[in-house]
Write a protein that binds this DNA or RNA. Structure first.
Lengths: 184, 184
DNA sequence: ACCTGAACACCGTTCAAGT
DNA sequence: ACCTGAACACCGTTCAAGT
């Protein structure tokens, strides 16, 4: 990539993070280009879809979480590992308010820029769940797709301004429902 | 209301139901006016906001649910009453895909056309929850606002096409977490 | 009393023209 | 190789002019 292009790429991301943080995931792409002082075409060249922008903004978080999931896979007890993972993925998804709908949709859209990250993330969760189930620590009547849906639901709750402050309690209630031991 | 106005009002609602059913709650208002063969101003005169359209479309369902909640209040056992209520409110909210976000936001927006319905609905749920709690059938560490948030989460899950088919199982898991008896 | 649609200020996306 | 912004087809909302 040419030096000027690289600079534009990085600068667009910085501005996009600000705009999305302020206005949520459905903020105006045009507004991002305007605030970044680049032509609309330049933004579209680097990020052909809104999802491509999301992916670039979340990539490092996704990567960190992936390594973390590997660590957690050998952490005992298995139920605590899954709750810790849940807490971390929900926090990442919340960092870009409203992006969770795109992430959940991406699971069944192979062409989405978010597809690979979300499939990987879902697979990590599935492994953690299956280990807890094998040890009798998680309910056996659910699968990785259900866990992924619960990540969506928890994140959605956190995203709603009118539900502010209830996230922690509801996290406890829902994550407690996955486990067999009882309270978290 | 003049006869022609009344006819327009009813016809807009019929068309709006079709358009929202097909495209979800964020469908184009302009498109509704176009398909109803009325001027844009006519639509805005009858329904000054998108929420006013939602409210009119859901009003009879809300009213039915309100009467139903009164019945359920004296239905034994109290835990079964709350689960039945949950099932019915989630089904109503799902009938207009995507409207749940507006409903949850309306709780803290007194000027929203959806405010009164949602406050009433939340109050019904709270009464049912408190009765179950008094009988030791529901966990005591949550309140009506938490229950309302769970209605939101359950409806959101049902709204996501990529999570189709998991609604029933997740309903069981989450509603089971509210109750103390265990499985639903 | 009610209806209409032009007008305004936006938006996402594409692509010919420039450097 | 990359950037620009006009052009196109939309959108929500308002309001003067009509019946």
């Amino acid at each position: 990539m040419r030096a000027d292009a690289q600079k534009n790429y990085a600068h667009i991301l910085t501005v996009a993070r600000d705009v999305f943080t302020e206005q949520g995931a459905d903020a105006s792409i045009r507004d991002v280009a305007r605030k970044a002082d680049v032509g609309l075409g330049t933004l579209y060249r680097h990020f052909p879809t809104r999802e491509a922008l999301f992916e670039a903004l979340l990539r490092s978080s996704f990567n960190t979480l992936e390594r973390r999931a590997d660590e957690l896979q050998s952490l005992e007890p298995a139920d605590q590992a899954i709750v810790t993972w849940l807490r971390e993925i929900v926090e990442i998804a919340c960092s870009l308010r409203g992006v969770i709908a795109a992430m959940v949709a991406a699971i069944e859209e192979p062409d989405s820029a978010l597809h690979a990250s979300c499939v990987t993330m879902k697979a990590s969760g599935t492994r953690l769940l299956e280990r807890a189930q094998a040890q009798g620590l998680a309910r056996s009547d659910m699968d990785g797709a259900d866990l992924f849906a619960l990540v969506g639901a928890l994140t959605w709750i956190q995203d709603q301004p009118s539900l502010a402050g209830r996230g922690e309690r509801l996290f406890g209630i829902i994550s407690g429902a996955i486990l067999l031991g009882g309270a978290v």
